[in-house]
């Protein structure tokens, strides 16, 4: 069983990995418009089809059951048209991973996300999330003053998230995977509201 300190180490490590990756991979779009001699239709085709993988950091704060107040950090990996700077907005579709320590538990989630968002020049994070959703497999460890019975347990399950400007919500279901006393609930339904992605 992982200790609380271990969870926090994992969280900090994942956030740093997200930042590092975001600063390295394909962040500077290529601008080839001015000197490209190809016919317009070929240039348009190339602009649509030439893609690169991009990592961008994601962050959220929320109140949820069972984590209560929590802050999450992670990254999204998406294949994008290589030339797009996404300063206004882009659609990011791809793999998402996030760790999220909270006042009553911590969560590790991995899954698929689709989000319309912008990122400012030279920023390693999605700065404005306009709309998006994600489906994640999550592993949760509760601690402290968790309202669950028992207060310390490990759960695994799924979470769906839907984000709009200024707000995101999530729902999910978890199944207890750690041992507990007889009569303890095996399933926990989760819900939350917060900001970010």
């Amino acid at each position: 069983m992982l200790s609380r300190a271990r969870w926090l180490h994992i969280a900090a490590g994942a956030v740093l990995c997200g930042l590092w990756a975001g600063s390295l991979v394909g962040q500077e779009p290529r601008n080839r418009a001015s000197e490209d001699p190809r016919p317009l239709t070929d240039r348009v085709r190339a602009d649509v089809d030439e893609t690169s993988l991009r990592w961008l950091g994601i962050a959220r704060v929320r109140y949820s059951i069972p984590l209560e107040f929590s802050a999450g950090g992670g990254a999204i990996l998406a294949r994008m048209p290589a030339s797009h700077d996404c300063a206004t907005f882009c659609e990011y579709r791809g793999f998402v991973a996030q760790v999220e320590p909270g006042s009553a538990g911590g969560q590790l989630g991995v899954g698929y996300a689709r989000v319309i968002a912008a990122n400012k020049p030279r920023s390693a994070f999605l700065n404005n999330v306009y709309v998006g959703w994600s489906a994640r497999a999550v592993l949760v460890r509760t601690w402290g003053d968790s309202e669950l019975d028992p207060a310390r347990q490990t759960l695994a399950g799924f979470e769906g998230q839907f984000a709009l400007p200024r707000i995101s919500f999530n729902v999910g279901v978890l199944r207890r995977v750690s041992s507990a006393h007889e009569g303890a609930d095996r399933y926990v339904y989760t819900a939350g509201i917060g900001w970010g992605f």
Binding site: D47, V48, H84, T88, E91, R114, I116, V131
Partner: peptide
């Protein structure tokens, strides 16, 4: 079709082939 947005608009606000205003950090 995209999530609430449209692919043609998303392309036109990003492509270096499209002349638009505002464009570039200073004009933004």
């Amino acid at each position: 079709r995209m999530l609430f947005f449209d692919g043609f608009e998303t392309w036109s606000v990003n492509s270096p082939l499209v002349s638009r205003s505002p464009s570039g950090p200073e004009e933004m």
